[in-house]
């Protein structure tokens, strides 16, 4: 089976600054792949190169089997993306946001109607369909944004810190949603800096200063670094003064 994502020495430089420095990895289909790192480690830049928003400086990568240099538009048909910045229109209602994104992904009207019903039922938001998004609590908005990002049933979904600023209960619910989609075969590429969330991932890569410092299952990483939790693994890797090969 072809991997969902491959990256080979993928690099992005902005002038003198190297945001992402020769990262290489593979993500299997249906895998929940965690992308960990401190703020500014290069997680978002890496995601933006994979989903076609940013052209890599060098290196190779494929997403859903397509090259990130030549076939960005084909990739865009097969992926979903939930950016770190809030990406729904706050001055539109829940319903209007669903219709708009369904529409520009080219879903037939019938499908949009059907999806809308299902999506609102799953989120328990039936009575908020006509509420402006700006008046929803953050946790609800994030769950809605995720549901809209996967409305067109992408093969791979990129989630950039989807649970930032969200309460623990909602984060839990959010991860249940992620698990449900992964079980149905969707590949999940998720960045976070909550170390407890790292435990939920199939495999985790830890980025430090634009490089991948470690990549394995949470269990193997904990053994490798003789740590009790992912938190300790992370601190071990990112502790000031520590040098990486």
């Amino acid at each position: 089976m072809l991997p969902a994502i491959t990256a080979d020495k993928l690099t992005k430089r902005f002038g003198d600054f190297t945001a992402v420095n020769q990262i290489s990895f593979e993500v299997k289909k249906g895998e929940i792949f965690g992308f960990l790192g401190a703020n500014g480690a290069g997680k978002t830049t890496a995601i933006r190169m994979l989903n076609g928003l940013s052209r890599p400086t060098s290196g190779q990568a494929t997403v859903a089997g397509f090259d990130v240099y030549r076939n960005t538009e084909k990739i865009k048909r097969r992926i979903g993306y939930m950016s770190q910045k809030f990406s729904l229109y706050e001055d539109l209602t829940v319903r209007e946001n669903i219709q708009f994104y369904g529409g520009i992904y080219g879903l037939p009207l019938k499908d949009i109607r059907h999806q809308m019903k299902q999506l609102l039922a799953n989120l328990g938001m039936e009575s908020y369909a006509r509420t402006l998004v700006k008046s929803l609590p953050l946790g609800w908005r994030q769950k809605l944004a995720f549901s809209i990002a996967i409305m067109h049933r992408p093969e791979i979904v990129f989630l950039d810190e989807p649970t930032g600023g969200v309460d623990p209960i909602t984060r839990r619910q959010f991860w249940e949603m992620i698990y449900k989609e992964a079980n149905e075969g969707m590949t999940i590429f998720v960045t976070t800096h909550y170390m407890d969330e790292a435990e939920y991932c199939g495999r985790v890569s830890i980025m430090v200063d634009g490089r991948i410092a470690a990549l394995d299952t949470p269990k193997a990483l904990k053994e490798q670094f003789h740590a009790d939790s992912m938190n300790d693994v992370f601190l071990n890797l990112t502790r000031p003064g520590r040098q990486h090969a």
Binding site: N51, G52, L53, E73, K76, R77, I79, Y81, S83, K85, F86, S87, L88, Y89, E90, Y101, I104, Y105, G106
Partner: peptide, 13 residues
């Protein structure tokens, strides 16, 4: 400015 353009740019539009 509000960031929604990213969400549009990542669609096949």
């Amino acid at each position: 400015e509000i960031g929604t353009i990213e969400q549009i740019n990542v669609t096949p539009i």
